[in-house]
Design a protein around this nucleic acid. Structure first.
Lengths: 236, 236
DNA sequence: GCGCACAATATTGTATACAATAAACTTCTT
DNA sequence: AAGAAGTTTATTGTATACAATATTGTGCGC
């Protein structure tokens, strides 16, 4: 298990900080889907009792990035392909309108911040930190949701983005796990121009594009190969 | 505190059953917004230790129908007016498409079940059980989400419906806290006819109508009266 | 060598104990 | 009488202990 090493000062560890650390590790693909998250192990790592670990895990379970199986333990979630499609479908329903609203609400500071995000993402890539770049790519979408000034929908998008990270880990076959930089730049420009209609359209096509990277997996070549191997090899 | 009386058999009490019982009590307005939910009190009622009560309360907190204030306790949530608008706005974004999808997926059994819901709702009203009628009115929307066969979005709608119940308790001024029966009947007919476009439009206007019952509160007549009273009465 | 039964161990679920914090109550000062 | 300060009590936060369940390891029979 590869996590953020807890800081030497453990007096301020809260269930929230534990949950956030685990969430980030999952988001950056440092914790793979299916990974067992043992309570004792985590309480050793974070130097707190199991009580706080359990609360953190429950919180992550409600975010649907951890699955708690009664009497068996907690595991990094493994969304099914159906769930994968549902998550992106939900994003296609929510995020274009959010982008439209963001275009109507954005301040110059917001635009600076969005551009900073892309800069940091490129810096992380250049430094070979793909997990960090992936995390920032997702955060870009969350920033747009924040700018849109609709907290209820932003909360929903937050959960969907987190789950998207797991889905990418499981079902993604493109070279890059990141959103295309051009799509994000175009979104920033539309938002900066306060062009709600364009922002909405760009986000829609961006998400349809992301979703299409999953569709390719409904007939995976690997699955066909296994089937051929099993029917041809009696040692299976 | 008025809750479901726990059954004499307490061997099967789980954190989930506690959370569900509390959720239903909140939904039916038996627990009003702002109500203190003390851990010791609940553990006495449900005859379990505080551990399980805390887990149940945390679960409800993630559903945003309970607010946990550190070192102060748990309270039935009191959504702000802003949150109220956001919740209905989110529903306006999600539920029309869900209704459309439900119209494409519905089976005859689904239609029977939806009609049963309205029947039960009327029976509850006739029996004077307004809380139950309110709960069933909300469940009607959840059933449509279930029929739509998109669990991710249905989960979101579930949370929004629960929060709607609190919002109705706080900000509703119509005679009836229920959705209008005609709107629900029309929805059933559109869904039964597999008319996705009509179902979507009907749900849209239904939710806009519900939302407008909140809008009335942004310039409430009561507030104007209070202002007039305060400026004319020096005893304030 | 494989499969099954049993024992030992590990882990999760829950209760209880202790610590920390807030709320309520009492006393003192002005 | 009102407000502030101090004390007591109640409640929440967290750790620890015990119970329940699952997993792993070992021995035996075929």
């Amino acid at each position: 298990m590869t996590l953020n090493t807890p800081k030497a000062d453990t007096t301020n560890v809260t269930t929230e900080s534990i949950a956030n650390a685990l969430s980030q590790a999952i988001h950056e693909h440092r914790l793979a889907p299916g990974t067992k998250l043992g309570e004792d192990e985590l309480s050793d790592i974070y130097r707190v009792s199991r009580t706080m670990v359990r609360a953190a895990l429950q919180s992550l379970s409600h975010q649907q990035i951890v699955e708690i199986k009664r009497n068996r333990g907690a595991f990094v979630a493994q969304p099914s392909l159906t769930e994968a499609h549902e998550v992106f479908e939900a994003r296609e329903l929510l995020e274009p309108r959010t982008a439209r609203s963001a275009a109507l609400h954005a301040t110059p500071d917001d635009i600076v911040l969005l551009n900073d995000h892309i800069t940091q993402e490129h810096a992380a890539l250049a430094a070979g930190d793909r997990g960090r770049a992936l995390y920032l790519s997702g955060q870009f979408h969350l920033e747009i949701a924040r700018i849109a000034k609709q907290q209820t929908i932003a909360d929903m998008i937050n959960v969907l983005i987190a789950r998207s990270s797991l889905i990418i880990a499981l079902y993604w076959r493109r070279e890059s796990a990141l959103c295309e930089s051009q799509a994000h730049h175009a979104l920033i420009n539309a938002i900066a121009d306060n062009n709600g209609t364009l922002a909405e359209e760009l986000m829609q096509s961006h998400l349809v594009d992301l979703h299409s990277a999953l569709n390719l997996h409904e007939l995976p070549p690997v699955k066909q190969n296994l089937k051929a191997m099993l029917s041809g090899d009696p040692t299976a």
